[in-house]
């Protein structure tokens, strides 16, 4: 049995629902914040996620950071040495989807030479009538980037755990791979 610890950075444009997602996950679906308060620095959410079909778990240290450009310089420090990435966009905003490439690049630049497991999350799936980003298109892009794709509605409390469980699984898998590398050294 092992308990891993992973720094998870939550990235994406302002108002896509990063804070809403982190908070609903933290409170097991008990707490949806309807009113928008922009994140100015970083909020930390810590939660242990069991890895399915193992006795192991991953303690996720979720760094919910500001989407606003104004704060981007601060991010360089807060984003140091990430282990996994949760990239969020809003399915009703083409702009927020287009920004994902930029956020991804910024996150990966933090750990050149190592891989950064990640997921892409299309949030606000409840706003079906206002959807502008097609699921298939987003999924295809995610696949091309080596990210797993999820759609969520934090408001309807739909699917909000799946991206984090997936991140835990990916990080656990990475650990097992590295242990094999260590084993083969001598």
């Amino acid at each position: 049995m092992v308990k891993l610890a992973a720094k998870c950075i939550l990235a994406g444009d302002p108002t896509v629902g990063k804070t809403a997602l982190a908070q609903i996950f933290r409170s097991d679906g008990a707490h949806f914040q309807k009113n928008y308060t922009l994140t100015t620095g970083v909020d930390l959410v810590v939660k242990t996620v069991p890895v399915p079909d193992t006795g192991d778990s991953v303690e996720l240290f979720i760094f919910d950071s500001a989407g606003k450009e104004l704060f981007s310089e601060m991010l360089d420090k807060l984003w140091e040495s990430p282990n996994v990435l949760c990239l969020v966009y809003d399915v009703t905003s083409e702009q927020s989807f287009n920004s994902c490439a930029k956020w991804l690049e910024k996150a990966r630049a933090q750990i050149p030479g190592s891989s950064l497991p990640g997921v892409l999350v299309g949030n606000k799936a409840d706003l079906a009538g206002r959807r502008v980003v097609d699921s298939a298109q987003a999924q295809a892009w995610a696949l091309g980037q080596g990210l797993e794709y999820f759609e969520t509605s934090v408001k309807e409390m739909e699917n909000y755990e799946a991206p984090f469980v997936c991140l835990a699984k990916q990080f656990h898998h990475l650990y097992q791979e590295k242990v094999e590398v260590f084993q083969a050294l001598v």
Partner: peptide, 21 residues
């Protein structure tokens, strides 16, 4: 499976792993 005692057991085949940040 890879406890810290492995560091001082005199055997380089066994090891201790870090498990996070």
């Amino acid at each position: 499976k890879h406890p810290p005692e492995n560091i001082i057991d005199g055997n380089p085949e066994t090891f201790w792993t870090t498990t996070g940040m």
